[in-house]
Design a protein around this nucleic acid. Structure first.
Length: 590
RNA sequence: GGCCUCGUAGUUCAACUGAAUAGAAUAUCAGAUUUCGGCUCUGAGGGUUACAGGUUUGAAUCCUGUCGAGGUCACCA
């Protein structure tokens, strides 16, 4: 039982005994460091049920708590704030009761399952920095949910259908000379991406050619032979034309291979995949049923709509007049398919950029109207764009930061900095490369995840691999240093710590450690990796100031040394757990 | 134009969802240290939380309006 829960009940008891009133909740906050105390009860909200002077009420409650609660040994009141001093014994017993800090805060898996979707790229371009934010967020939220006791399925929807795919296919057929990833040594997604660009270049040439022949720009855009041919290809694809389908399969295969390498480099994975080419037809079935249920209606031209004006939104098309599926149709189909495939799923989280806020608002509403019980638990994990110091990323202007390049750049910077430190000269080349990758990636992930998802992020490549301050490598470094201390200390017996007097830094550390389980739960309920990142940095800062003020090896008594070493070990374990839900690995040395 | 999100030290981010004197990091400046101006430590300055009202014992946080940044309003995905 946490300290807050114990105190909360006792405060309520005090209110009912002293004032004959009842209180629903008690508000706590950390005691500011300029006052004495470990935890603070805010008296102001109680004024609603108890009339009187907040200072006097605080005094009475404080006196009551000191008399009736073992953990509370002293108190003081400042304005409406009741600062309580908690006994060392309480913190020490908390510390010795947790036998294993490596799983501290984690809750074992329940039947309550969630599906988390992230990444979901187009198959015609390599992944870029924007995808990186998506992937990191989605993966981390999935891991946070797992650690907080949910069963989680990580998934994505692969956007493998449509005119854009045909464009790169066509360009490859015309200009490719049979090039393959093997023959060129290029990653599959890069190769296909190049032909997508090639299409655009040739298409533009055709347009200007046509304009010089006297067509207007509008006409030229529609009549350019390349575009017409791509459209014909799409029709063939939908009709199941063997040649087109096999080319489509071949080129998509290349892209998937390329993506897999990128995902592996980033360190994320998926439990199940959905392909748009498989689910778009399902959506159309549901549309039919929806008409019968009066959720949708058909216009004269045959197009099908959903009227959401009563809910303050617009009318939304769900099927074109020619009977083909739109984006919305597929998403409806995919969601339903997922619920069928995984009946234990009680909710879904979609990690998608905030430019699609409206789309998901509509999607969720439609699914609710269709009457699915899981539709009550859908959440759009919306995030802001990633800007560069030079401005917005624009693929047309070539200012896009490629994901693979980014990862290797980060590792290269990590290498430069690590070499200057010179602590790992005895590592093998392979160990060094692993370490640089770990640090570079740690920097990138932390830099992105510490920011509130809904805010835009400014990505400054130079700042992002900093080793100082609130950065991933700084926390990794602290972890490595703790491991070094533990190696030096050797075996430490696990004995009880009765009789130790806590120094203020030690007490603060224990307080912060104790907060980890609730922080994890809070992060899970708010889908917020940033909360974990900031918690971890606070813990590391406290540990560093502990480390500076208290000598571990120079402790006077063996029992004190043991305690400090174990405290270091616990901090290390908690930092490691916290970083693991952010998807960041910890080096044993660096 | 309608709707949505955001606006906090020079900069990048916090603030436990309404509480005490709004915190870190980084940059800047001043000291200490040294082979040097680089590394490391110590300290300081830096804020009317975009602006104006309102609600409240109490507002960066909630409400209204204004300004600014971005997004979105397709039979594209």
């Amino acid at each position: 039982m946490s300290l807050q829960n114990i105190l909360s009940e006792k405060v309520k008891l005090a209110i009912s005994q002293l004032y004959n009133a009842s209180l629903d909740t008690v508000e706590f906050q950390a005691t500011r460091k300029e006052f004495e105390g470990d935890i603070t009860v805010v008296v102001f909200p109680m004024l609603r049920v108890v009339k009187g002077n907040p200072v006097q009420i605080g005094e009475s409650i404080g006196t009551f708590l000191v008399e009736h609660v073992d953990e509370v040994i002293n108190f003081n009141v400042v304005k409406g704030f009741l600062n309580l001093v908690i006994s060392d014994a309480y913190f020490l017993s908390f510390f010795s009761e947790v036998s294993d800090f490596s799983s501290f805060g984690k809750v074992s898996e329940s039947d309550n399952a969630m599906m988390v979707e992230y990444s979901s790229p187009n198959t015609n371009k390599p992944l870029h920095l924007g995808h990186v934010r998506n992937v990191l967020l989605g993966y981390s939220v999935a891991e946070i949910l797992k650690a907080s006791g949910k069963k989680v399925y990580k998934t994505q929807i692969v956007n493998d259908r449509g005119i854009h795919i045909c464009k790169s296919m066509l360009a490859w057929e015309r200009y490719g000379n049979g090039e393959t990833p093997d023959s060129t040594g290029l990653k599959g997604d890069k190769l296909v991406g190049n032909y997508y660009v090639k299409f655009d270049q040739e298409y533009k040439k055709e347009i200007s050619q046509l304009i010089s022949e006297g067509l207007t720009e509008e006409e030229a855009k529609v009549q350019a032979p390349m575009l017409v041919e791509a459209q014909e290809m799409l029709i063939k694809w939908e009709a199941g034309d063997e040649e087109v389908v096999s080319l489509w399969k071949k080129m998509n295969g290349w892209v998937y291979n390329g993506f897999d390498k990128t995902y592996e480099a980033i360190g994320v994975d998926f439990d199940t995949l959905y392909y748009e080419s498989n689910t778009y037809l399902l959506g159309k079935e549901v549309i039919k049923e929806g008409i019968a249920k009066d959720v949708f209606y058909q216009k004269e031209d045959g197009s099908i709509w959903c009227d959401l004006t009563e809910d303050g939104l617009d009318e939304k098309i769900v099927q074109r007049s020619d009977g083909t599926a739109v984006y919305m149709t597929q998403d409806i189909g995919t969601a339903i398919q997922r619920a069928k495939d995984y009946p234990d799923v009680g909710g879904m989280i979609y990690t998608v950029g905030n430019e699609q806020d409206y789309h998901f608002k509509v999607l969720f509403l439609i699914l609710k109207k269709l009457g699915f019980n899981w539709a009550e638990n859908l959440f759009h994990l919306s995030y802001g764009m990633v800007d560069l110091p030079s401005g917005k990323m624009k693929s047309r202007e070539g200012t896009v930061v490629d994901a693979d390049d980014l990862i290797s750049d980060m590792a290269a910077t990590a290498k430069k900095i690590s070499e200057e430190l010179g602590k790992i000269d005895d590592f093998s080349e392979e160990e060094k490369e692993d370490l640089y990758h770990m640090i570079g990636l740690g920097a990138l992930k932390y830099y992105i995840l510490k920011v509130d998802p809904k805010k835009r992020i400014l990505f400054n490549p130079e700042e992002s691999v900093d080793f100082q301050g609130n950065t991933g490598p700084f926390i990794q470094y602290t972890y490595a240093r703790i491991q070094s201390i533990l190696r030096k200390a050797g075996e430490v017996s696990n004995i009880s710590f009765d009789g130790i007097t806590l120094q203020s830094k030690e007490k603060e550390l224990l307080k912060q450690l104790q907060l980890f389980p609730e922080t994890l739960q809070l992060a899970a309920s708010q889908y917020s990796p940033a909360l974990i990142a900031n918690y971890t940095y606070d813990l590391v800062k406290l540990y560093n100031s502990f480390f500076q003020n208290i000598s571990i090896f120079g402790a006077e008594k063996e029992i004190e040394k043991n305690f400090r070493v174990q405290l270091s070990s616990a901090v290390g374990q908690v930092i490691k757990t916290a970083f693991s839900v952010l998807g960041i690995k910890m080096p044993e040395r660096m």
